Simulated assay, not measured.
Amino acid sequence: MMAARASLLARLTASIEAKQALLSDQDRIATFEAVAEAVVAAYKAGGRLYIAGNGGSAADAQHLAAEFVSKLARDRASLPAEALTVDSSILTAIGNDYGFDKVFSRQVEGKMTAKDIFLGITTSGNSRNILEAVRSCRKLGVRTIIFSGHHGGLVAKDADYCLLAPSNVTSTIQEIHIIFAHALCECVENAMFPLQST
């Protein structure tokens, strides 16, 4: 099973290299800080977090929404967050009536206000339905965050914030996105529910 060993070692090496690249990239770290501040500001203004993605990124959207609504690491009040990927009736109705490109933008138009914040997860940055959602957010005055990879794709120029995983490999990009997601939730938890000093 040398092929299995080689595959595992290659994936581990790619993951480590991407994380090391991120550690030394001050611009990306500064973008992450700005993203965390934007999400905290939205919550403090009474807004909600809406998250969307396709395929594995849809699962990541649900994962992150769960961390905000339940908890990440410690007990605290619930934070309102919703993945726009979970209602099969809405998804199939919009897909059937307007096309798959509109499955998130129609939800943005029906659910979001300027107090809210949108997070789109797209490894390529070229997912048409994420791009359409960001454009709908812009019309509504909703702040937008994108987690992407490569060079950010088409959506990078339209989003308020674009956090890029330093990789061109989908699986490695997805690993970095989970790091972004967990770190974001931790930052928001700490800002919204500061630990009481004793």
Rank of each mutant, 00 (worst) to 15 (best):
M112C: 05
Q62C: 09
D97R: 11
D87T: 12
F104D: 05
A65G: 07
N54P: 04
N126K: 06
G47D: 07
L79K: 01
Q107V: 02
V103K: 05
K71C: 09
L64I: 15
A45P: 01
S57V: 01
A61P: 02
E82V: 10
T113M: 04
E82A: 01
V86H: 11
G46Y: 15
L119I: 13
I90Q: 15
L119Q: 08
S78N: 11
Y98R: 09
A83T: 14
A77P: 10
G55K: 03
S89F: 13
I94H: 05
L84M: 11
E109K: 08
F118I: 15
A114T: 11
I51M: 04
H63E: 14
G55V: 07
T122F: 01
I90T: 10
T122D: 02
Q107K: 13
D87M: 14
D101K: 11
H63F: 02
G120T: 01
G56H: 06
K102I: 09
R48E: 06
A58R: 05
G99Y: 15
G95N: 09
R76G: 14
L84E: 12
S70G: 12
I117H: 06
L49C: 03
L72E: 02
A52T: 11
Y50I: 10
R74M: 04
D116I: 12
A52R: 11
L49Y: 11
D116S: 14
L91R: 08
A73H: 11
A66K: 01
L119C: 09
H63A: 07
F100T: 07
Q107F: 00
S88H: 04
D97A: 04
G99N: 14
E82G: 00
A52V: 14
D60Y: 05
T85W: 02
G95K: 08
N126L: 00
D87P: 13
K102G: 02
K102F: 14
S57C: 12
A45I: 02
S88Q: 10
Y50E: 15
A61V: 02
V86T: 15
A61S: 15
S124K: 09
A61C: 13
F118M: 12
A83K: 13
R74I: 02
D101H: 08
R48A: 07
F68L: 10
Q62W: 01
G110Q: 06
A114W: 08
D75E: 15
V108Y: 02
Q107R: 03
V108S: 10
N96H: 15
I121A: 05
S105M: 14
A65M: 04
A58W: 06
G125V: 06
T122G: 02
A61D: 06
N126M: 06
I94K: 07
H63S: 07
I121P: 00
G56S: 03
K115P: 03
V108K: 01
G120S: 04
